[in-house]
Design a protein around this nucleic acid. Structure first.
Length: 936
RNA sequence: GCGCAUGUGGUGAAAUUGGUAGACACGUCAGACUUAGGAUCUGAUGCCGCGAGGUGUGGGGGUUCGAGUCCCUCCAUGCGCACCA
């Protein structure tokens, strides 16, 4: 019998499906283990070889844990709401529900061919009403909650209302900028009360800036805006304020930071999240002045945010963001022309330009001054685009001797610089140190800056000039999209008050539309459905919210749904969520580092606050699979011809050679013969330029340039897993992806090495099966030598799998097989544990051979072999012997030898004698089981 | 600019605690079997050298009996953030 992987793989995939091998129950008398992949967005392009890398790794681990006696939850689903489907609908008129369904079918068939052990009965799709019903339910829960800083958790909004009725905002730790007394609150109209509550709700509606494109009549995502114009059509895009929904993730900022200490993520990932949250400690300080405006003298106060209150005596000027509302109010008559011109100039510049020309210094003096709070000094107030309106208070106190940007600004506009750090400031460059001793700093003189900060804040607070303040870079997350293909909000507006639907009105199903174009005034496509939008009957009447929720809504809690996917009474039962608990292993790409992971962590904490679950971090351990890059190839063009590529750069430009990875050899050589055959297969149109072939021994060729890039359809460097599965089989494909290198590392995709893994499986097959005779495995008892190599491999492979070192585990299989083949071993006693160990990596061939050996049950449910110490202990070791640290020879010595015995054995060795050259070693270093070193 | 990660043969890589650098594969070369080889098997393969030997983990320096591994410094590449007060 030959190794016919196509028949074998099909047979077992069908059998596993029919017999429900991978079905998991919520209680099996075994310890639970939850292995999850980041579920995919089902794009029209299907899977490429980069996708399955993480899926294979998690599948190997899930299967391994199952063999080790765990009840393993390993589900898969689809993040099936999203922009591309809607974009496709706009272009082709096909309904997103239809294309999404088709894409999911493609993805599933591709995944099934790779032999994953998913329990498909638990599949979830975020666009399915039975799923998004609970996304809407959770949204309403967020809407009806506030974050109580005193108890440090989310609570029903009713507890806030009770507090407001009782004592107003006076006892609230975080007043969200609202101050009312109980009497005022109780006298409020419903509208006033609701408006105030909006400042506290965890899901709230407010005005936010969006990218508005007038010509397209729609709001665009950041990705859709390129260089300040729309990706489609290239129309201008401007910032516009629109009513949006937000999630108050900032209230969870500190807990999101703290939680990172308790999870097993890579340091890089944690750092990325910390940077994104961007916590800084400092103070808000008020600077007051009187503006001499056209309408007379006008007192004003500028509130700045600073992380360095210790430098307050070094303030030489103030800077307001151009968008700051005070700019126009305080500008003097003399400066009003210049300021207007400057504001006009800033407005003309896109965000993009402001970023691109970051080093260009611009600004304008307003003519106004503020008083220094601690000394007699007038400080000029400027406006400049280097201060951002969105961060802090949109205003800064500039300390040129300690901050680069402030220094450059002062130099550029000839503003005198005060030195408060003595010799630490050289006048040529700012010094941001915290360790200098303060001078010219009033009550802070003589202090180390690091210590002075707290003292400065204490004084500022005591004098009523400001307050200690923690600031976050992170903003509340925008939670609405002016789009069709997303979860509708269960909200009805009436008299500008948002009323939630009641729970029994859920799900609010996404109505069918004919057209996907935008509605009026930038509203989403749903606003075109007059009948749907205007609710005239039922418990709440009014106008429906016409935005839909963003992609991360459904993905923020899907891991909980998998524990109890069919539940129609609750989002998942407490018992199911308690049984499975946290996700033990979560695998996915780094691209979700800050978005998805932060939101799902926040939702988990929220759900925890309400007691539905007993853990507040969703993922115990996170592994980020590295990106698989594709090789792209480029022709070198010179004049009207394509020439052979050389590294010295004597060409004019590069032309992308589509699908070049299918024609170019490993040295970058492209032969005319191959290229012409390639053109025939219609994979590439002939380039417009003629090719100047080089000649060598009758062969015509050129060299092309090779580059590694992220795999993407648009770069034509994508390999489809289906092709490889067809050519080599799923088992080879799985093992090869694991063999490629460490899972977390990015690596170039290259199919050239796949043969090695394929040969390994063929060799294993031949060890068990002869073409003529069939099964050739014997029942003879194994020898000690055979057991030794087996048990060494059991130890190595289980340890490597346990630490996600799949590439070395695969090579350990190869070593084991090579050793067994040297020993001419075909024994069932050895092959059985080998097949069980192999089954997580190559499940089909393992199942086939395991059954052929005569076992009744599936290899999937076998017991993982145990390494027996008895076969692992050695009695002697071949020691490397070094002289002065240089390895000169090896000597086999018993492990029980004493230091003296070792020394005499070593000294009597010929090679050692030769290198010693009559001298006596000063010292003999002998480390048992490691090495021997002689110091001469 | 800041933060994080990574630099090892022609290629993917290994070396888990400071202890024989390059396991395991790909590729290449030589050979065997064969009508044939894109099947299979055997052997060789970091670099320099006929050899003894020398040399070698991005560069330089250090700690150590001993460094790919630890420390300092510089360089390169990738990723993330980017005028964040």
């Amino acid at each position: 019998m030959e190794y016919n992987f196509r028949d074998i793989e099909q047979k077992w995939q069908a059998w596993w499906k029919e017999s429900g091998t991978y079905k998991v129950t919520n209680n099996a008398g075994k310890p639970p283990f939850y292995v999850l992949d980041m579920f995919p967005y089902p794009s029209g392009a299907g899977l490429h070889v980069g996708h399955p890398l993480g899926y294979i790794a998690s599948d190997v681990f899930a299967r391994y844990k199952r063999l080790k006696g765990f009840n393993v939850l390993h589900p898969m689903g689809f993040d099936s709401f999203g922009l591309p489907a809607e974009q496709y609908a706009l272009e082709t008129g096909q309904h997103p529900a239809v294309t999404t369904e088709k894409n999911i079918a493609t993805f599933k068939s591709q995944l099934e061919k790779i032999g994953f052990s998913y329990d498909w009965s638990r599949e979830v799709q975020t666009s399915d009403p039975s799923y998004y019903r609970w996304t809407q339910w959770l949204f309403l829960k967020l809407f009806k909650s506030w974050y109580n800083k005193s108890t440090d958790k989310a609570e029903p909004i009713e507890t806030l209302i009770a507090e407001l009725e009782q004592s107003g905002t006076v006892n609230l730790k975080d007043k969200k900028g609202c101050e009312v007394s109980a009497a005022q609150w109780n006298a409020f109209t419903e509208k006033q009360q609701q408006d105030l509550l909006m400042n506290f709700r965890l899901a709230y509606s407010s005005y936010g800036e969006v990218n508005w494109c007038e010509q397209l009549g729609t709001v665009l995502a950041n990705d859709e805006v390129i260089n300040g114009v729309s990706e489609r059509g290239g129309f201008p895009v401007e910032k516009r304020k629109m009513r949006q929904w937000f999630l108050r993730i900032t209230d969870y900022a500190d807990r999101l930071l703290e939680g990172l200490e308790r999870v097993d993520f890579s340091e890089a990932m944690k750092e990325m999240q910390r940077n994104w949250i961007g916590r800084s400690e400092g103070a808000e300080v008020d600077f007051s002045g009187v503006a001499e405006t056209e309408n007379g003298a006008k007192p004003f106060t500028i509130k700045v945010y600073t992380t360095r209150p210790d430098t307050i005596f070094g303030v030489d000027f103030m800077v307001l963001a151009p968008e700051h509302e005070l700019v126009r109010e305080i500008t003097t008559k003399a400066q009003s022309g210049a300021v207007e011109d400057y504001l006009q100039y800033v407005k003309s510049r896109s965000d993009r330009e402001r970023l691109a020309e970051a080093r260009q210094i611009t600004g304008c003096f307003t003519g106004a001054y503020v008083d220094h709070p601690f000394m007699e000094r007038k400080i000029p107030v400027w406006t400049s685009e280097y201060v951002l309106s969105g961060y802090g208070t949109g205003a800064i106190m500039a300390v040129p001797c300690g901050d680069d940007r402030d220094f450059n600004f002062a130099q550029h506009f000839n503003i005198p610089i005060t030195n408060i750090i003595g010799a630490a400031f050289d006048g040529r460059e700012a010094n941001a140190t915290k360790d200098a001793i303060l001078e010219n700093s009033g009550f802070l003189n003589g202090m180390v800056m690091r210590d002075a900060a707290g003292i400065a804040i204490d004084r500022i607070e005591k004098d009523g000039l400001g307050t200690r303040k923690v600031n976050y870079r992170m903003h509340d997350a925008g939670f609405s999209r002016q789009r069709y293909w997303g979860e509708p909000f269960p909200i009805i507006w009436k008299d500008e008050i948002a009323y939630p639907l009641s729970e029994d009105e859920l799900p609010l199903e996404l109505p069918f539309v004919e057209k996907y174009g935008p509605g009026k005034n930038g509203e989403g496509p749903l606003s075109n459905l007059e009948d749907w939008v205007n609710v005239k009957e039922g418990p709440t009447t009014g106008r429906r919210e016409t935005s839909t929720m963003p992609g991360y809504a459904g993905s923020s809690w899907y891991f909980l749904r998998f524990t109890d996917p069919g539940n129609s009474n609750e989002f998942a039962s407490k018992s199911a969520m308690d049984y499975w608990g946290q996700v033990d292993l979560y695998i996915g790409g780094t691209e979700h580092a800050v978005g998805h992971l932060l939101y799902s962590r926040m939702w988990t904490k929220f759900i925890y606050d309400y007691g539905y679950i007993s853990f507040d971090e969703p993922y115990k351990r996170l592994i980020n699979q590295g990106m698989i890059t594709g090789k792209s190839y480029f022709f070198a063009r010179k004049g009207d011809s394509i020439v052979s590529y050389t590294e010295d750069g004597t060409y004019d430009s590069m032309i992308r050679f589509k699908y070049g990875h299918k024609a170019v050899d490993s040295t970058g050589k492209l032969t005319r013969k191959v290229f012409e055959a390639f053109l025939k297969e219609a994979m590439h149109e002939a380039p417009a330029q003629s090719i100047v072939w080089e000649q060598n021994g009758g062969e015509e060729f050129i060299f092309v340039k090779e580059e590694s890039e992220k795999m993407s359809k648009s770069k034509f460097n994508v390999d489809n897993p289906d092709d490889l599965v067809y050519k080599y089989g799923a088992d080879t494909f799985r093992m090869y992806e694991m063999f490629l290198g460490p899972i977390e590392q990015s690596k170039p995709w290259d199919t050239k090495g796949i043969e090695g893994v394929n040969r390994f499986l063929k060799k294993l097959w031949r060890m068990c099966m002869d073409e003529q005779k069939g099964l050739v495995v014997t029942d003879e008892p194994a020898t000690v030598a055979e057991l030794r190599v087996l048990h060494k491999a059991i130890k190595k492979i289980s340890e490597d799998t346990e630490r996600f070192s799949f590439n070395t585990a695969v090579s350990a299989f190869m070593i084991l097989l090579n050793d067994l083949s040297d020993l001419k071993c075909r024994k069932k006693e050895i092959l059985t544990p080998l097949l069980i160990m192999l089954s997580p990596y190559a499940p089909h061939i393992a199942e086939e051979l395991y059954r052929a050996l005569g076992y009744e049950g599936s290899v999937v449910t076998a017991d993982y072999p145990q390494a027996d110490e008895k076969y692992l202990t050695e009695s002697e070791k071949e020691y490397p012997v070094s002289i002065n640290g240089k390895m000169r020879t090896t000597i086999v010595i018993s492990l029980s030898a004493t230091q003296d015995e070792v020394e005499s054995i070593v000294m009597s060795n010929e090679v050692v004698q030769r290198w010693l050259d009559q001298k006596t070693p000063k010292k003999v270093i002998y480390v048992k089981n490691k090495m021997i070193n002689l110091v001469v």
